[in-house]
């Protein structure tokens, strides 16, 4: 009557993708050799532990620190393209890591999940890269003079949308 033990740890595919993205998010910090890389490294460690012990809070904390590290690197003057891909990688790690956690919890490691996970990860990456591309395009057009009003308005737009969506 022993039955099958169910391994509820996060799925392998998702965990691997999330960790790879997390490592990628360290790149802007590495390029500036500043505080960013330190913050990011702590984040990667938290992400790793979160996936190892199936703790969602740690996955979120780790991704947050990874993104924070990228922003710090941005402040320290890392190249725009690197910063944008770093942020995308950080959010991607968060999304895919959570998904691996949820699939592990709901279905376990034994179940076939790879196809669904790859589709989920692909879409997530596409959304991030498309947004980053759009933002980069805008920055190329607006390079040089930096109109304060534009920034404020964009800020307001973001805040309004965020308020509407949550």
């Amino acid at each position: 009557m022993s039955g099958v033990e169910i391994d509820r740890s996060p799925t392998r595919v998702g965990s691997a993708l999330a960790l790879a993205a997390g490592a990628l998010a360290l790149a802007p910090g590495v390029s500036t050799v500043g505080a960013g890389v330190l913050v990011g490294a702590v984040g990667l460690l938290a992400l790793f532990n979160g996936l190892l012990f199936a703790r969602r809070g740690l996955v979120t904390l780790g991704s947050t620190l990874l993104v924070a590290g990228v922003l710090v690197a941005g402040v320290e003057g890392a190249p725009t393209l690197l910063v944008l891909s770093g942020v995308v990688a950080g959010v991607f790690a968060w999304d895919v890591g959570q998904n691996a956690l949820e699939l592990g919890e709901q279905l376990g490691r034994e179940a076939e999940t790879a196809r669904v996970e790859l589709l989920h990860a692909g879409t997530s990456a596409a959304v991030g890269l498309a947004t980053a591309g759009l933002a980069y395009g805008v920055s190329l057009v607006g390079v040089g003079g930096r109109p304060v009003a534009a920034v404020v308005l964009l800020l307001f737009a973001a805040a309004a949308l965020v308020a509407a969506l949550t």
Binding site: G77, V87, V127, S139, R146, L161
Partner: peptide, 22 residues
């Protein structure tokens, strides 16, 4: 953060968040 430190790069990074929120 971008507005405070005057870094357009950081402001753009924030835009990625808007994309994911949408």
């Amino acid at each position: 953060l971008g507005v405070l430190v005057g870094s357009p790069t950081v402001v753009l990074a924030g835009a990625v968040g808007v994309g994911y929120a949408a």
